[in-house]
Design a protein around this nucleic acid. Structure first.
Length: 558
RNA sequence: UGGGGGUUCGUCUAGUGGUAGGACUGCGGACUCUGACUCCGCCAGCGGGGGUUCGAAUCCCUCACCCCCAGCCA
């Protein structure tokens, strides 16, 4: 994966890898991205993906995609498929596709090994008693009455659990560690639980399923993972990760390294909340363009490259952080500025009549697709006597420094010629219906007269040739930077009521209508837009605003 | 006196005993047939206190604040 227009950025995990390679601890690194197939990937997962795949690719190692599918209650093949397509879309290809469920037999055998060595026992307390005896954060737990059950009995019970002889919850296999440990995860953690449900891959072959802590480290070891990178909340699991590997005949002992998740402001990132937004109908789906999911960002018009660049620039550390949305926006603007073909579109149209333009005639202007990149080619833009311009580009009583059209003023029509105001027509309520102008034929782009400078240049679309389009203007999903900060109020109360504004009477130049879903453009002076999938069965094009252009004029007027 | 982490410009981050650097934002300017882009410049930081040292963001002590852990979830 080539993510490297710029040199790699140093971070503590990369430093560990460099050290391990230099010291000869490893001669090749192996990483993995281990999602549970119980939901869709979001921008936070992308950080982990970029980190794991990026590190391996930089140092000539490999990365596996491994589904952590140990809880059949929540997982599905559909989610797994969506995750694979998102990872690929992001631009990464895994070395091997693995599943924790591939290792169910080995995991079981290792558990038997643990029991035989007196390191695990079958506990027959109910869940409630187990919780009660675990103690609290400040008080030690107490040993289960079954803790000293004989190895033979545990072995027999465990096999019975596997064979489906017991109901869910009747028994659980626990590691025998230390009920008084300050680390709650070391207080005889559950290793296996009974779950008589079908697994999306192993069907009803198993009646018991391994817990995360048991499955994860061993899966890492089986795959020869060298650096098992995960997020901060697993820091306290590390002693357990190590304990498990130290107590089985493990092929190797991967190093778990934790980093801070990357949060964005004005959104939420937890799977649970994202799910709530979808199921509550607050958004149109997992791929709603306002969602921070990979699918949502993709539909919004974000490119994989922009997401990779974003995470590269954000860096990796152990400090919890909330990154301003503006940083992500900056990444897509940079990408689009390089690659988006330019077109003209009027979102809030008002008519301009060029009174000295011959009636019934039209002409084509050849306009470059990119002002700095002639190699991107050009398109033909039709001009006629009546055109649409942006309502905001004309003001009867303009403020200081208003460079656009005004009574008595001149302005250049982008890619065409200069026009001069002559008159306006209003309706009985005083609304502007038409603006009358005269054009200067000598100032056509390409002619010597084009050298004449006027301060403003505005975009336009021929009324005769323009195509009606639906434009979906997206804004941040929440109206406050951190919707979770207020402990009194639910985050849903902070949903931004204006996060979607649909414009149905926008006019775009013909070149836009030729595009297909996923194509993107810069609407000059407005922003970056992408053709939405809904366009496929719509008589008119539907476009999503990915992000607006920076607008220092608007900023000046705030 | 449960345990585990964290704190460097507004934001994100680099730095492991030798001039605190970069990116984003912000501000100012140049350029411009996009008030975009680009270019130039500027502002701005080591949580507090103490110690070791010729020299500390870095080592030691201490205080403060923030986050995580009591699933048969991951």
């Amino acid at each position: 994966m080539n993510n490297d227009q710029t040199p790699p950025v140093s971070n503590f995990i990369r430093n560990i890898v460099i050290r391990d390679l230099e010291s000869g601890k490893h001669n090749k690194i192996v990483t993995r991205f281990p999602p549970e197939p119980n939901g869709h990937l979001h921008i936070g997962h992308a950080k982990s993906i970029c980190l794991n795949f990026g590190l391996a690719s930089e140092f000539g190692g490999t990365t596996n995609l491994r589904f952590d599918d140990t809880n059949p209650l929540k997982e599905s093949e559909d989610f797994a498929q969506a995750i694979m397509s998102d990872v690929r879309w992001l631009g990464f290809e895994w070395n091997e596709l693995r599943h924790a469920s591939d290792y169910f037999q080995q995991l079981y055998d290792y558990a038997v090994h643990l029991i035989k060595n007196g390191k695990a026992y079958v506990d027959s307390q109910d869940a409630e008693s187990m919780r009660a005896s675990r103690g609290t954060l400040t008080e030690a737990g107490t040993n289960s009455p079954y803790r000293d059950r004989s190895i033979e009995e545990s072995l027999e019970l465990f096999e019975g659990m596997k064979n489906g002889e017991f109901a869910d919850g009747e028994h659980v296999l626990r590691a025998r560690i230390d009920m008084a440990s300050g680390n709650m995860h070391m207080r005889d953690p559950a290793v296996y639980r009974i779950r008589k449900v079908a697994h999306h891959r192993t069907g009803d072959e198993w009646n018991i399923y391994p817990m995360y802590d048991w499955a994860h480290g061993i899966s890492d070891a089986i795959e020869g993972i060298t650096h098992s990178i995960c997020t901060l909340e697993f820091e306290e699991h590390r002693p357990l990760y190590d304990w498990f590997l130290d107590n089985i005949p493990s092929p190797c002992h991967p190093q778990q390294i934790e980093f801070a998740r990357g949060n964005l402001d004005f959104t939420v990132m937890s799977k649970r909340k994202l799910k709530e937004l979808v199921e509550g109908g607050y958004v149109s789906g997992w791929d709603d363009p306002r969602m921070p999911t990979i699918a949502g960002l993709r539909r919004r018009g974000y490119t994989a490259q922009s997401i990779r660049t974003f995470w590269k620039e954000a860096g990796v550390s152990k400090a919890e952080s909330i990154i301003p949305m503006g940083v992500l926006e900056n990444a897509i603007r940079n990408d689009m500025n390089e690659n988006a073909p330019r077109v003209m579109a009027v979102l809030d149209p008002v008519k301009v009549v060029l009174t000295n333009y011959p009636e019934g005639e039209s002409e084509l202007f050849e306009a470059p697709s990119h002002p700095q990149k002639p190699e991107m080619g050009s398109r033909s833009v039709p001009m006629s006597r009546e055109i649409w311009i942006e309502r905001g580009d004309f003001m009867e009583e303009p403020p200081r420094k208003f460079f656009r059209l005004r009574p008595g003023g001149e302005v250049r029509l982008r890619n065409a010629f200069i026009i001069k105001y002559t008159d306006i027509v209003k309706d009985s309520e005083g609304n502007i219906i038409e603006i009358h102008c005269e054009y200067d034929p000598e100032s056509r782009s390409g002619l010597p007269g084009a050298a004449r400078k006027v301060k403003g240049t505005i975009h336009w679309v021929s009324a005769e040739h323009g195509i009606n389009a639906e434009i979906r203007l997206y804004d941040r999903l929440f109206s406050v930077a951190n919707p979770l900060a207020d402990k009194e109020k639910d985050y849903l109360e902070f949903l931004n009521p204006h996060s979607l504004d649909v414009i149905t009477d926008a006019i775009v130049e013909p070149a836009v209508a030729k595009g297909s879903p996923g194509d993107f453009f810069q609407f000059e002076r407005v922003g970056y837009f992408t053709i939405d999938q809904d366009s496929a069965d719509s008589e008119r094009p539907i476009l999503n605003r990915t992000v607006s252009l920076r607008d220092s004029w608007a900023k000046l007027n705030r």
